[in-house]
Simulated assay, not measured.
Amino acid sequence: MDRLLGLLSIHVQKGVNLAARDIRSSDPYIIFRIGEQTLKTGVIKKNINPVWDEVVTIAVFEPLPIKMEVYDKDTFSRDDEMGDAEFDIKPFIEALKMQFNDLPDETIISTVKPTRTNCLSEESNITWSKGKVIQNMVLRLRNVVSGEIEIQLEWINVPGSKGL
């Protein structure tokens, strides 16, 4: 617990225009990796525009980039790769360290712009919303013809952890 900064809640909202890996569709799921941790979403059957609406929670010991890999679940063969992305949580963690006492709801604290080195397909706002700092991201998948994944980050402080 002395190294734990807190927990990062990743709300996996949906995928848009994912690559078809089966005849006309795919059965996508996502694996998130940070350090030694690996978390996986459920599989959405026969859908290239899946809605997960699922939350995965990762323990953060240091603000490393998070790797995201999308796969097509296959029953009788190895799962097919459907692309990957990586996102940096440092801007989000820096925003968390600021003081927000009397900010109006939905105030944009910071904006992360898409670059050649990040996987953002559009600007990502870090926002003060309902008493919490959140970040919405649309991530363009790499190593694939098409596909984006929409996620939302939220921080969970853990009593007894090192904290930010």
Results as ranks from 00 to 15, higher is better:
R116P: 00
S121E: 04
P28N: 03
A59W: 03
N136Y: 14
N157H: 05
V133W: 05
T111I: 15
D102H: 12
G163I: 01
E150N: 02
K132C: 10
P50K: 07
I156R: 11
L103E: 10
L164F: 15
P91R: 14
P28R: 04
K162G: 03
E69V: 09
E122Q: 14
S110V: 14
T111S: 08
V112I: 15
K113H: 08
Q13E: 14
V70N: 01
A19N: 11
F87G: 08
V70I: 07
L103S: 07
N49C: 05
R3C: 00
R21Q: 04
E36N: 14
L103K: 09
S121C: 06
I58S: 02
R142P: 13
D72E: 04
E69P: 01
I66E: 02
E106T: 08
R78K: 12
D27E: 08
L8P: 03
I10K: 02
P104M: 10
S25W: 01
L96V: 02
N101D: 14
M82W: 00
A19Q: 13
P159Q: 05
G131H: 12
T107S: 13
I93R: 05
W128T: 03
L141G: 07
L164Q: 10
L39Q: 05
P50C: 10
I109C: 03
I48H: 03
F92A: 04
V60M: 02
P50I: 10
S161P: 09
K97T: 05
K113A: 02
K97P: 08
M68T: 08
S121Q: 02
G131C: 10
L4H: 11
D53W: 01
A19T: 11
E148G: 05
D74C: 00
H11N: 14
V133Y: 00
M82L: 13
G15C: 12
I58A: 03
L96Q: 04
F92E: 07
T57N: 01
P65G: 07
D22Y: 02
P50M: 10
I149H: 02
E36M: 11
T115C: 03
P91W: 14
D2K: 13
R116E: 00
E36D: 13
I30T: 04
G6P: 09
K132Q: 14
G42T: 13
E123T: 13
R24H: 11
S146I: 03
I109N: 00
I151V: 15
K97G: 04
Q135F: 06
K130E: 13
R3Y: 05
G147C: 01
L8D: 06
S124C: 09
I23K: 15
D84G: 13
G163C: 04
R142F: 12
Q13T: 13
T41L: 08
T117W: 13
G42D: 12
V133G: 01
I151N: 08
K113S: 06
I109D: 02
Q13F: 11
N47T: 06
W52I: 02
W155E: 04
G160F: 02
M137N: 06
F61D: 07
E122P: 06
N101L: 14
I30Y: 01
L64F: 11
E36C: 09
L5G: 04
F32K: 08
